[in-house]
Design a binder for these strands. Structure first.
Lengths: 212, 212
DNA sequence: CTAATTAACTTAACACCGTTAAGTAAAACT
DNA sequence: AGTTTTACTTAACGGTGTTAAGTTAATTAG
């Protein structure tokens, strides 16, 4: 029994080391430059060993993708004590943008890259979205509360949540994938911050409309 | 003289054939599955010939990226006769989403994929953005007109334009990169349409706020 | 008209990549 | 002590982008 335990622990350890090496390479070099062979070299095992722990390359990046969602939820958890739902919604938008800019490679993996999604479609497993659902659930919950407080009257909470997500995602993904070069140099400085502020301004103007 | 002309014309023809083959493969199989060797096989030339016409793979996809902007501008040109700037802004948003959904691979290349941007950073050439600037310029022009008509008072035209772009880009890129699975099945049907409608509803509610 | 040059293209190769089949050696179990 | 299982490796397959060197035909120059 104890031998089996030790073995299991050791397997888990190596799995962890693979993931750790993959993460390190991936964060410093990006997705394209992180190969199975690179990872193998870093942990001093043969490339094929990795296939004993992960189905394929997409599977490794799916695991990192999950780690990213845990990290995102850490950013969001701090905002649960903001009582006013509208203030919380604005805080979520800001925190989301901060997460994206402070963890660019993770953000790319979670919301832009195709790789981790391939791993999902191969074996449809709903519970694998646990962390993702938690993050999006926080948004839906907040938006729903906003609606109950009279904001965004008549809108569908889920669709509006998706739209809010889209708005901030748009900003972050254009920044991360380097599409901001069409903007004048003066406005390129902290463009995501400025655009984020505009989003919040837009939400607030809708609010002002309501209370008048 | 006439011989040199013919030669030049022939060179241009082959360049066109490479691009045509690349486009066909890329549209039906996507970026990852379109290789230099595939393209070469399709036009019945050796792979190395392609390097006589394009610097590298990114350079080919940059050329297609440019074609995409021409196509997008066709979608936008039709809207120039919408006289009311606010109506035109809403129409631009709708047309942009339609373009994205009807030309998914092009959209991916133009606004998501890293490949064509690599070609740009290698040799910074401002005039290469001509078509891109035309598209974004149409947006800026419309937003500026809106502001002159009293909409979005106090906002920076360029930053607001970028934010509008971000909003619709967010919707399109989440759809194209398959991130809409967290939404309930009921709302997944025509989600981009619903979210696009919410964006327009948001813009309109800001407007209503103003005129009251 | 012939020799030298240039243009257009190909062959062969390099150094990678993800992935798999087959083999090995040690550990665990019977 | 012999058998089976586990953990891992070697070697290979078929693919990728890219480059150096070679070939052949067309053009130009003497």
């Amino acid at each position: 029994m104890t031998i089996a335990n030790r073995k299991e622990r050791q397997k888990e350890e190596l799995r962890g080391k693979i993931l750790e090496a993959a993460k390190a390479l991936f964060i410093e070099r990006g997705f394209e430059e992180t190969s199975i062979r690179n990872i193998a070299e870093k942990i001093e095992y043969s490339p094929t060993t990795i296939y004993l722990y992960f189905k394929d390359k997409d599977d490794i990046f799916y695991a990192l993708h999950q780690e990213g969602f845990v990290l995102l939820n850490q950013y969001l958890r701090a905002l649960l004590n903001v009582t006013d739902p509208f203030e919380r919604l604005k805080a979520i938008c800001k925190a989301y943008i901060a997460f994206a800019l402070e963890n660019r490679e993770f953000y790319d993996l979670m919301f832009i890259s195709r790789s981790p999604m391939n791993a999902l479609t191969k074996d449809k497993d709903d519970e694998k979205w646990e962390e993702g659902n938690k993050a999006f659930g926080a948004l839906i919950g907040t938006v729903t509360e906003c609606i109950h407080h009279g904001y965004f009257a008549g809108m569908d909470p889920e669709v509006l949540s998706f739209t809010c997500w889209s708005m901030v995602h748009g900003i972050c993904s254009l920044e991360i994938r380097g599409r901001c070069t069409v903007i004048s140099e003066a406005n390129q400085e902290n463009l995501t911050g400025k655009a984020g502020a505009v989003i919040i301004e837009i939400l607030e103007r809708m609010h002002r409309n309501l209370i008048k």
